[in-house]
Amino acid sequence: MSDQPVTTGEDAAGAAGEIRPGMAFSGGFRGAGEGVPEELRPGVIETRGMNVYYGDFEAVSGIDLNFQYNEISALIGPSGCGKSTVLRSLNRMNDLIPSARTEGEVIYHGENIYAPGVDPVEIRRRLGMVFQKPNPFPKSIYDNIAWGVKINGFKGSRADMDDVVQRALEQAALWDEVKDKLKESGLSLSGGQQQRLCIARAVATQPDVVLMDEPCSALDPIATLRIEELMLELKKDYSIIIVTHNMQQAARVSDRTAFFNVELDNRGMRTGHLVEFSPTDLLFTNPKQTQTEDYITGRFG
């Protein structure tokens, strides 16, 4: 439970709720499923029959996904199939798009995050996000990281905060490069450094899950490799869900991969569907669906 009172951003309607949101979200489930068959193990976050609309347009339909603790899950598929849409609906960032509407359930720690009374602010604090384009705040490197920690009610001293900042930067493999210029603007860094700063910023608030939308698409191969190493490092402490167009990347880092595809519905709308969600080695070596096989072998038409 966050230390703050439930300050509702956009969902004031349900705030005076019967449900005390957050109680259910505060950990305790981790590792609960050791020894239980994989399919039955409760995931960190799970979608059930999720449809997302932009206005009248159904962008994705009938998504059932179950993401596991301390794993890297990759979302792949052709452009426009709704990967970003799915990712954004996992931490209610879609709420920021006025026309967006989500149906179905997204279960996080046993509770539907779209239920009335759930504060999206708390959801986002537990499911951090890294965007395709690095978007550091126009503030110092230090403040870029300290801000998210502070607004979530950090109680420690100045020295404690220094530690938090340092640890986050170390986790993001950026500490050595910036430790002498923490006061400089986050915008003065290179693109790859900025992206790692954004990752550091996201992990500093200690979320459960880190959602990443094509975090490497603006980076050169070396920076990309660094971020991949970083993800493998982070997965010890966090669950990571990553959207990527780079199938080698998905194959290299992810434990599980979801393949999406677009289908024309009867009204001629291009709606995204989940085609297959399997352990990565299986999906790439032995796909169950021909669509998947066509896509990963580049025979996609």
């Binding site: 956009e10 920021l96 604090r125 705040f137 801000w147 998210g148 607004i151």
Partner: peptide, 21 residues
């Protein structure tokens, strides 16, 4: 908009994001 998204994605309220960024 990326600044607003960046702020909100860290679990800030709308007003915190607006005021700080």
């Amino acid at each position: 908009n990326s600044l607003r998204q960046g702020g909100m994605a860290l679990g800030a309220t709308k007003w915190q994001t607006v005021r700080s960024h």
